[in-house]
Design a protein around this nucleic acid. Sequence first.
DNA 1: AAGCGTATCAACCGCGGATAG
DNA 2: CCTATCCGCGGTTGATACGCT
Length: 556
Amino acid sequence: MIEMTSDSDKRKAARCRKNSPDAEEVSSGGNSSGGSCLKKGPWTSAEDAILVEYVTKHGEGNWNAVQKHSGLSRCGKSCRLRWANHLRPDLKKGSFTPEEENRIIELHAKMGNKWARMAAELPGRTDNEIKNYWNTRIKRLLRAGLPIYPPSVSRQARNDSQQSEEMMTCQSGDIHHSESSDTNSFQIPDVEFKNLGLDQGYINCSPALLDIAPTNLLPKAVSSSNSYGFMFSSLNPHKRLREVDSQFHVNVPSTSNTFPKFERHEDDPFGRLVPVQPLWSPPIYDPDLNINGTSAIDVLGSHAPINGNSSSSEPVSEAMKLELPSLQYSASQVGSWATPSSPLPSLESVDTLIQSPLSEHTQSNCPSPRSSGLLEAIVYESQSLKCSNYNSHQQGLDTSVMAGDVVESSSRNVCEPKWDACGDPISPLSHSAASVFVEFTPVSGGSSSDEPQSAETIPGKFDWISAESDGKKDVSCPLEYLRPDALLDSYWFSHRIGRSKDESITGDFGALLGDDFSYEHKQGSALPCDESNQSSGLGTSTWDTICGVYPFSKND
DNA sequence: AAGCGTATCAACCGCGGATAG
DNA sequence: CCTATCCGCGGTTGATACGCT
């Protein structure tokens, strides 16, 4: 994990050496203290001492007075920051403990990027620290194509939101209307919240979000992105498969006859695949199976929520922003990706692509915006509505089995039919295959029925990575359960989606992943993790990253 | 060993809310 | 009620460390 103390101390020392008082930088910006030259940049230990002394004497607050009275050439803001982040006596030093990490994840699922509020829940930790940690973590997860939130956290959030929804429904009747009245100029709630099939409970009723204006919420809700771990579960399963196969079938060479063959349905305006042979494959469990061709990381990362800044990490995702973030994308990039024949975006490009979730795969019957503007999103959604109910019935077949939460779906919210109506396989709202895998990742406490938490969890943190099926714990290779290939054959998986293992789970996923996966699966690769990973396109570094993110041995 | 890319962290910037005058 | 100031927050940037090739 992060060796904060030693590293930061070293760096601090280096900076202090570099930024000796003799080489003071001078602030060019004015400040309320009236044009005096204020130093910027790293603090020296002398400055620290002055500040500490001052605050000890006078207490916190009135930061602008610090500069006046202590002789520090620092603006009040800077003093406050320095004190809050480094000099406060109650600060905890060192890296986050696993408990703290879990707590951060939990809190972020509830609060989003409310760093200060999160810091308040973590004594001795600063908002900046948490923010940095989160951003780093996000980067790693996204790089690895892993979900931001562990399913258990997602589930909990969902449960919370559902409870809230019930409560809010009782209180206010129809919360959607009340919200749409706030945003009626855009018709946002109708278009977005319902059509998106987002967990409305979360959007509308989550206490943590109630203070967020719908207009702010919207962009967060529009895209897939960070919270897809649970966002996905609330999406119409039709949409899930549709999106996935529309993304993956194109590029994957057929190399298998073990997995069901899929052909493009001629009548399908989206060119989706339909099975032309029975959805069945012999259940072989081999944790070391790999995925070739369309590597897991490609799959997982294709829609991976990367918004360099962590604002994308709201409980409801917000990769799409109203304003272009600093990380912009070029039209050419978008265009090339949108071309069906173009390969899936490289992992390196995900950062760019995710900035414009609305732009992906725009070559469809339904016009979709290429910019990430709110208005375009709305227009797009409206058009999507008109565009197709094509999928609504046809996809019942293949996708109903896809949903890890399909069991829950019957009792879920009324927005799901809207998903059917919005049959755009290339919706900017699409979710990555990672979501599928994540959603199906065996989870402690895992099923929708809120099974008790598995006692056998990875020590310390990420206890959601463990397997459980009918009380039979399987933690033999937790990491492998993150891998779709292993997942497909897991008893848990079969159980989870309500289909016997002899049925076509693997087939469905084979279709999603492409024939290469099928091929690899058929081969029954017995490679050890490392080798398998390499051949699967998951380079060791990537795999190591995953193992770093989810701190257990890949050979566990 | 050098070069390059990435991770990490500290600090800055700009914005917005709260409050005082 | 308006304006100025303070304060806090969240996003972003820049510097350094580190690891890989």
